[in-house]
């Protein structure tokens, strides 16, 4: 089924790009984290994410069968071809922004991967099963940090509130499904967007509730769509850095 295959490739690239871009942003913290313990923790999360991205890219590359391997997919596609959600491409900001960004993503990621462990596509189910363990820990960590900052000092609370305010508008893009995902979900392959969104909402309400952080109203659509490659301006710059060597020396072996 060609349609199904194209849908699947598209869906895999979303999963891959989400993990990859999030991991890339975490790499930017290297050497700059607020404590040595956090250096370790952030790099651990980044390693998990880039590792997951590699698994998704490899599967996508096999299905594409157009000569591109995982590296070509990660390092030579243009920003309009990237399928990640807008949230993960946002700049790191201060530690509150990074924490909020990770938490909002982790909650979505864990519920998505949990659903995917039951995928009828065995390869997806296997990659997701490994990813669930990692994402469970990611969510535990980022959730705890939301609480620490949300209910720490007055300054940290203000920063956390500002971070949520800054990032919330991207959660619509994070949670939205589309026809491709719908078709795959109906075929038992992809996660159901509405179900993930509901689980996400419950997790966010629980963690925010524990520290009296208000949960904003659902964010409204604002005419960009990561799944269609309609990104904020931040992604292009991020890719220029991430893809530099592959772009400057096309086809080289590293």
């Amino acid at each position: 089924m060609t349609d199904n295959k194209n849908d699947l490739i598209e869906y895999l690239l979303r999963l891959a790009d989400n993990a990859m871009i999030n991991g890339q942003r975490l790499c930017e913290w290297c050497g700059h984290a607020p404590a040595l313990e956090e250096e370790m923790a952030l790099m651990n999360v980044a390693l998990d994410l880039v590792g997951q991205a590699r698994n998704w890219y490899e599967y996508a590359a096999e299905l594409l069968a157009d000569g591109r391997d995982a590296d070509r997919l990660a390092f030579t596609r243009d920003e309009r071809d990237f399928r990640n959600t807008l949230l993960v491409e946002q700049p790191n900001g201060d530690y509150a922004v990074t924490t909020a960004k990770l938490f909002l993503f982790d909650a979505w990621h864990l519920h998505t991967l949990q659903a995917l462990t039951a995928s009828k596509d065995e390869r997806i189910a296997a990659i997701a099963a490994k990813g669930v363990k990692e994402a469970t820990y990611h969510l535990r960590r980022s959730g705890e940090w939301v609480e620490r900052l949300g209910d720490g000092t007055e300054e940290s609370r203000q920063r956390m509130l500002a971070a949520i305010d800054e990032l919330w508008r991207f959660t619509g893009d994070l949670l939205a499904g589309d026809a491709i995902q719908q078709r795959l979900a109906e075929a038992g392959i992809a996660a159901d967007a509405a179900a993930v969104a509901a689980a996400w909402q419950a997790t966010v309400e629980q963690v925010f509730g524990a520290t009296n952080l208000p949960v904003p109203q659902p964010s409204s659509y604002f005419y960009l769509d990561g799944k269609k490659g309609l990104h904020t301006e931040h992604l292009g710059i991020l890719l220029a850095e991430m893809q530099f060597l592959q772009r400057a020396y096309p086809g080289a072996t590293w």
Partner: peptide, 20 residues
Amino acid sequence: SVHAADANMALESARDLYTR
């Protein structure tokens, strides 16, 4: 050893540092 603000954080840091 690790430095942490609370025991939970210490557990997580210990996990990240000593069981990589």
